[in-house]
Amino acid sequence: MQVDTNGFHCFKGLVKMLRQGDDLCYQAVKKEDAEKVQSMTKDEAMVYSYIEASGSEGIWTKTIKAKTNLHQSVVQRCLKNLEGKRYIKNIKSVKYPTRKIYMLYNLQPSIDVTGGPWFTDSELDTEFISSLLSIVFRFIASESLPSEDDKPIAPPPKHRKRKSSSKKSSSSSSSSKEKQVSYDQLSFPASYSKYPSLSDIHDFVQNSGITTVDLALSDIKALVDVLIYDGKIETIDDGMSYRVVLGATAENGADLGGDEDGSGGVAWDAYTEVPCGHCSIVDLCKTGGPVSAEECVYFDEWLIQ
């Protein structure tokens, strides 16, 4: 490109000057874009160029003002005009929810701005997350617990038992029948290696069509981590795969309702059963104090139960 034609092209807006390291370079600009800029006033063009340069990150109005050295009202006017022509758009950032940030109309905001798949309209989509959590949990549960198709390595020895118990006292044969009811367990052996790994879970979520949002492996990891912190699943094989924690339920693993956990949970819940476990003024409670166990109405209710 000839040097003498530079001024002309720059003026027409068809070539942009860029700096790459210490060298100055030129970049061709699309004709439509150039025409767009041509139709703007000088100030608008300047504002537009900064917004364009910010790319998918967007730019804060204060930064525009500082960079262009224009007056606040001028910048506001320019932004309003540009937005009206649908050249730029206002976006909300997750990091700075109060800032007014602009970017080119045709661009998608970057993950830094939107906050990734967990954010919808720059707010954490808790419902989406909790539904995904319960789906992932169910998947891990189904993969890490033996199903009805799984057979025990040795069947309950009905015919064998009869042979051996005939030698022993008659009471033992009757008790063996009892046992099959009372001892009920079906676990995978410790060497079982088919517990789902992170990529298995990822594949499951992607293929299940639950969500159209593209979830990266790291997003799935975040979900699984939350489940671990909820005490619903645990890692085994040095964190390579995941399995469900027994006693955790699909809906609310840590928040064990009375029915969910049955009699097994009651033995573990002696403290919160007593009214004191939930009492908010428990620190004031003492004999002769403003509240006391002797006059506690919650105790009355609890004793009647």
Partner: peptide
């Protein structure tokens, strides 16, 4: 009388 074998699932494959 404790039945040990019936509580361990055979691996699927």
């Amino acid at each position: 009388h404790l039945d040990l074998g019936s509580s361990i699932a055979a691996p699927r494959r």
